[in-house]
Computed example of a mutant assay.
Amino acid sequence: MPAPRAAIVIPARYKSSRFPGKPLQALRGADGVSKSLIQRAWEAGMAAQGFAEVVVATDDARIAEAAEGFGARVVMTPESCRNGTERCAAALPMLESDPEVIVNLQGDAPLTPPWFLEALRDAMADQSFDVATPVLRCDAEAHAAFLEDRAAGRVGGTTAVFDRSGRALYFSKEVIPYTGRTFAAAETCPVFHHVGVYAYRPGALAAYAGWPEGGLETWEGLEQLRFLENGVALKCVEVEARGRVFWEVNNPQDVARVESAMERAGIL
């Protein structure tokens, strides 16, 4: 089946409760040059092949000015958008490519490799589900980083559990499934890191914007749980790291961690 026509939307807001001004945080690349987090996210989206357009969606003039300054197309969305999915829904009528699939590349995930985005779009050729998201099996280092964050009282990345067909069962900022142990480098870890990217068909995106926030979504602070709470099947698409470290900028402490990963990967 041919890949559907797809657009990438990068939602970005200034008023993050855990990290205000996060999209404009400077991140140093492997060459020592600093660029804003939103620019690095946009460059990650632009590196993916076969997408009709890449757009930054924001409600903040400072982010819009910065994005336009490095050449991104910007669409202004309402300040009332409560999360990135709602912001993608608000951006949908302003997209120029009339996409069959909208890929939400969150603005705090500059380490997202292009093959994650391409694999997610290609998975949407299967018409049996309307929403999909990538998951990455944790190695021992990533699992230890999750446990370190939780032990320190920090909210780090998100984990996912899903059934044998890939249908999501739950997402959490806790480390699930519980293992009670760490893993050696050669062991297979049963924990999957949820990659902060989503693919939606336009109808699913429009429906989401009309639903109230759910209880689980509110407690966990995870927007994708609104789909599960409304009975929508969400497909988890397993992707491969290919030697790359994946981590989002969730807290100020993550800046050094992501900069180190960019240096190791040679990301300029």
Rank of each mutant, 00 (worst) to 15 (best):
D130H: 12
F146E: 07
Q25W: 11
V74T: 10
K35D: 11
D98P: 07
T112P: 10
E53R: 07
R73A: 07
L95M: 12
A125F: 05
P93T: 13
L105T: 00
G107Q: 14
I38M: 07
D60R: 13
A52H: 07
V131P: 06
A89P: 01
Q49Y: 10
V131F: 04
H143M: 11
V55L: 10
T85P: 06
D130T: 02
V33P: 04
T112V: 15
C81W: 02
I102F: 11
A61Q: 13
A26R: 15
A89E: 10
D122Q: 08
K35S: 15
F70K: 05
A145P: 06
V101F: 05
A61W: 11
L147K: 09
G84P: 01
S80I: 10
V74W: 06
L136A: 03
A57N: 09
H143F: 13
I38P: 13
M94I: 09
A125L: 00
L117C: 04
V33T: 15
W42P: 09
D59V: 06
L120E: 00
L136F: 04
D130M: 06
A72K: 02
V103H: 12
V33Q: 11
A91T: 02
P110F: 04
K35I: 11
A57Q: 01
A52F: 07
S80W: 11
V135L: 02
T58K: 01
V103Q: 11
F129I: 04
A123V: 05
D31H: 11
I63T: 04
V74G: 01
C81A: 07
D139P: 00
T112G: 13
E118G: 12
P134E: 05
A48W: 06
L24F: 04
L27P: 02
A47Q: 09
N83H: 13
A91L: 14
L24V: 11
E43Y: 06
G107F: 15
A89W: 10
S80L: 05
I63L: 08
E118N: 04
